[in-house]
Design a protein around this nucleic acid. Structure first.
Lengths: 396, 396
DNA sequence: TCTCTTTGTCCTGTGACTGGAGAAAGTCAT
DNA sequence: ATGACTTTCTCCAGTCACAGGACAAAGAGA
């Protein structure tokens, strides 16, 4: 099957495509209510979209008291691929043009194996989704990687936790392999876009999206658009100092947030706690596995282990300290917390909230919700689909 | 004289007005090179602007190898008022339509005397400028106040250092008194706009502008536009925590930046140092005046006093610590340092630079200039003029 | 003085768009 | 059912904005 080749010819068409993406199938009349074009003009543009095949007729709409309007919708065969490459696992999902997830696969994988190995696996996962009948091909793909990206070119730059990825032409390469347009961004930015499109941030123009996983990052949305900074490294808050002259961090500095709260730090703290004879639960796990990881702490906390909960609270406090600073600086309308922390979410959230509400000024926190992301692992892949659809649904 | 009543009728005219504001008098042909309109269309729009009186003919341009073009410029009688209300003094300036400062007055004044008293003085200063023949009237005014502002309404909200200003309808009131359009913003944002228009930030789209005076604030410019946050309190970095469980701050928290580095903190530290017998220079000044202020420290430092320099370096380190965090988060293309610190600028700047370059990641600092503002006290008033001209030179 | 370049003006053709007329398709009350 | 009223859709003509060419004006340079 030939995939989507057409692109909107002008801003009106792009606008209509986005309305159909975000609002689902819609009648011509309803579209007319939203776009401020004359009926004739609207009809012309819709007809042109129908000609391109991007949009198809979809029966009759419910009557609004007179003649029933014809529905139109985005072509049901359109498929986007959302890829979220994390430090230790990969998520791949297919969506339709309305960015609804039709199929989603997660597999463990270490980014440090390098781009070639990782993308071999990603392409295999994509092929699997295709084979299961969810897609005949892909019209575009959005890819998130756990590090800074030079956005226009879609190339990772100096990613600390991804040795071997520096300068790898992700966008170019995957576009070749997949035979469709590709956009690449930081994984945190994708999460932010996901929550903005289909999650808690739907109606907020300026917000922060803090992702706590192997590392800690922050997506920044200004006026509905992701802000990436001049070199694409905006939101890199894991190495903000929380303790002058504090713990040494892998980055070479002292007292970084990630030195106190990250997968590695949490594991080390847990082992130390066992060494001090503090937690039977964690000791058992240590004995069983030989070492501890963040997952163990998370599980112990879920089981009610006081030491594990203390560790998470302490990390939440540190994170809250940083977020409090960012809230004072950025004055967002919402803070979303997400990442691989869904299990320990509420303990963590409580600690962060306490810290932010105590430290930031009332004017900034007065009406500031701090909430957990509602999409979990799908935020990233939906964000990926959103990224590429924003690109494709803009004038050529 | 009737003041400017006309406004640009469309985006093209607005564009032309801004080009003339930023580029000075210009020939029609040169304008044509910049706006991508057909000659006929350009001629029509220019003629319409001439009709409104916003723009006037200004002789012949130099030849570019053929027929000489006619110059046009913004009406030379247009006058904007820039007002920068600081914690302890007020700056008022008149500019022409190109935002060149024609006259500038500074007077000491305590904002705590309240809006009525302050604006009485501001209006007197404006009248003085008018009386000196620099203006026959004002076509618009931009006003900066040292606290958060609800921008669309031009009303200060819960300003910590301006008791009595909360909710005072500055924009409305001054607009009445002056008989011209008025816009109100945070003083730090005005400084940022000033440096962007006529200072070091001319060619940068995303930058931070840190103002160190009585308090510490930060102007945020994203994509050439000032970012104000959802409640107008963005950039309020004075109360970011730099030391967990540190010094108590006037805001009720502990370890805030302003608890370590602000006018009051600096004075207290200096007196403490004298108490410890550390500085002859400062001791002399303390004896002479009965107490010390930031100005004394500044002067002592300028005279080479080691203790004073140490105090400034310490403050610079704290500030640098905060800025380092902001740089990681925001990844700006430039950081401008300004405010009432011009005297001790280079010592301070060195301390800040050291701290930022050490603490932030290389990707964010790689090509990041950290510089002193080049406009000094005129940054605020130029920013004020810029603010109102942006408003007036936009489609009605 | 002659040629070439640049600038400004005029004019016409084209394409985008609006808004009305009227047909098509429904709803609702009688 | 039937007729009056609504809503939707299509068609069409009139208007407006704009581009771009032709040409005149004004100057540079040889």
């Amino acid at each position: 099957m030939r995939r989507m080749t057409a692109r909107p010819a002008n801003a009106h068409q792009a606008r209509l495509l986005r309305l159909l993406r975000d609002g689902g199938p819609n009648s011509r009349a309803q579209l007319g209510d939203q776009v401020d074009l004359s009926r004739s003009k609207l009809a012309v543009e819709v007809d042109r979209l129908l000609e391109t095949g991007l949009v198809v007729a979809d029966g009759l709409a419910a009557s609004r008291g007179g003649r029933r309007s014809h529905n139109i919708r985005l072509a049901p065969a359109l498929r986007f691929l959302g890829v979220d490459i994390g430090a230790t696992s990969v998520d791949v999902a297919v969506t339709n043009a309305e960015l609804e997830v039709l199929g989603h696969i997660n597999q463990p994988m270490d980014v440090r194996e390098g781009p070639v190995a990782v993308f071999e696996q990603v392409l295999a996962m994509a092929a699997k989704l295709k084979a299961s009948g969810l897609a005949e091909g892909f019209d575009g793909a959005g890819i998130g990687v756990p590090g800074p990206v030079r956005f226009p070119e879609g190339v990772p730059v100096a990613p600390p936790i991804m040795p071997g990825w520096d300068g790898f032409p992700v966008r170019e390469a995957i576009s070749q392999d997949l035979g469709c347009p590709v956009m690449v961004d930081n994984d945190v930015n994708l999460m932010a876009m996901g929550e903005q499109h289909a999650g808690v941030a739907r109606s907020v123009g300026d917000f922060l999206c803090v992702k706590i996983g192997t590392g800690i990052g922050c997506g920044i949305v200004v006026g509905g658009e992701v802000y990436r900074g001049v070199t694409g490294s905006a939101g890199d808050i894991g190495h903000i100092q929380v303790e002058p002259d504090g713990r040494p961090c892998a980055c070479g500095n002292k007292g970084c947030l990630e030195a106190y709260f990250s997968g590695a730090a949490l594991a080390r703290d847990a082992e130390d706690a066992v060494g001090q004879g503090l937690s039977q639960e964690l000791a058992t796990r240590l004995e069983a596995a030989g070492k501890l990881s963040a997952v163990d702490v998370s599980a112990a906390a879920a089981a009610g282990d006081a030491t594990a909960l203390d560790l998470i609270r302490a990390g939440g406090n540190r994170t809250g300290q940083v977020i409090a600073g960012l809230v004072s600086f950025f004055n967002p309308g919402l803070v979303v917390i997400g990442g691989g922390v869904t299990g320990l979410g509420h303990t963590l959230l409580a600690a962060i909230r306490t810290q932010v509400y105590r430290q930031s000024l009332p004017l900034a926190t007065g009406n500031l919700p701090i909430v957990l992301g509602e999409l979990g692992p799908t935020a990233g892949v939906i964000g990926g689909a959103r990224l590429i659809s924003d690109h494709l649904f803009s004038p050529a």
